[in-house]
């Protein structure tokens, strides 16, 4: 499949009097395929927005290469087929939703009021088209933002925190819209902190930390390796320890809890417990979540981070 976004050692360096040279984005190699929803994740200050701005040609890379839809970043022709929804954008408040779309449409040299109306209908704002933007709620502003990002029928959409600060209903509406973009064959590049949302809609993700890609791949692959928690009763400690060789054993008041990787032979554990006249109280599979992967990745990339978190009472 062709690459919608491809970067090779893309780097952005800022100079500061106090800190000297800082690589906000450092030799970033990113690969996003056409037609997929790609999640771009990272803690605050990891370099997500800087990367997006470089891909959009709003800021210039210090070195490295970047290609968007096969063209070098900054190529004005690409701007006809991409769109961007920034994090918490401000729109001209004096305009109505309809006027706002007409304004953005005119930036493409178009004048198509019918299209503006259709897009407002698509984002469920047709009834509020004549309200000014300052009368819109956060969710409505985000939806009108999505509508403006569809004006040019883009092949690639950059969405920066598209569901940030929205209520659950607005969350769901935006999520459904994003999923419909993929159904239409568009590529969606999402930068987000809402890991549960990303997990629900993204095909592939990249985790960026301190300007570098810490992990990148298909979600199904990255989230392999869940665990199973088995609660056991009526067996002695020696047997419990023997069973725990592939996992971790926790003492409970009336038994043991065995925490083991899902790829371990669970049937063998069950058979052994039964033959020892013990009983299995519960067996709970724990799927690996994106949040686990994210925390694990960021900690692994931050030497000394885990003990510090533990000392502060964190997970």
């Amino acid at each position: 499949m062709a690459a919608a976004i491809e970067t090779k050692k893309l780097t952005k360096t800022y100079r500061s009097r106090q800190l000297g040279k800082i690589n906000v984005v450092n030799e970033l190699d990113l690969h996003v395929e056409e037609g997929e929803i790609f999640g771009f994740l990272g803690p605050n200050g990891a370099g997500k927005t800087t990367t997006i701005k470089m891909l959009l040609g709003i800021i210039y890379p210090t070195h490295g290469e970047g290609y968007v839809l096969g063209r070098e970043i900054g190529d004005m022709d690409v701007h006809r087929v991409i769109s961007y929804l920034p994090e918490r954008p401000y729109y001209y408040e004096h305009m109505t939703g309809f006027e706002l779309l007409k304004f953005y449409d005119s930036l493409f040299g178009n004048h198509d009021p019918d299209k503006c109306q259709r897009l407002l209908e698509r984002v469920n704002l047709a009834g509020d088209a004549s309200k000014t933007i300052n009368q819109y709620s956060k969710g409505m502003q985000q939806r009108v933002g999505l509508a403006q990002s569809l004006l040019n029928d883009p092949k690639l959409l950059f969405l920066d925190e598209p569901t940030g600060g929205l209520d659950p209903i607005a969350h769901r509406e935006i999520r459904d819209l994003i999923l419909s973009f993929r159904d239409e064959g568009r590529t969606v590049f999402i930068s987000s902190h809402e890991l549960s949302e990303v997990e629900l809609i993204c095909d592939r993700v990249a985790i960026i930390h301190k300007g570098e890609i810490a992990r990148q791949g298909r979600l199904t692959e990255l989230l392999k390796g869940g665990r199973i928690e088995i609660t056991l009763q009526g067996i002695d400690e020696g047997l419990a320890r023997k069973l725990a060789t592939g996992g971790t054993l926790h003492n409970l008041s009336d038994g043991y809890m065995l925490d083991m990787p899902e790829e371990e032979d669970v049937n063998a554990v069950v058979d052994t417990v039964r033959s020892a006249k013990g009983s299995i109280v519960s067996m709970v599979p724990r799927k690996k979540r994106l949040e686990d992967l994210f925390v694990e990745t960021v900690r692994a990339a931050t030497p000394g981070a885990a003990p510090k978190l533990a000392a502060e009472g964190g997970v």
């Binding site: 701005k53 959009l56 040609g57 709003i58 004005m76 022709d77 701007h79 006809r80 991409i82 769109s83 961007y84 929804l85 920034p86 994090e87 918490r88 954008p89 401000y90 729109y91 001209y92 953005y104 930036l107 493409f108 040299g109 933002g145 403006q148 040019n152 950059f158």
Partner: peptide
């Protein structure tokens, strides 16, 4: 206010 981003990412120099 980040309005400039929604404008400069369109074919506007």
């Amino acid at each position: 206010r980040r309005t400039i981003y929604t404008i400069l990412c369109k074919p506007v120099q």
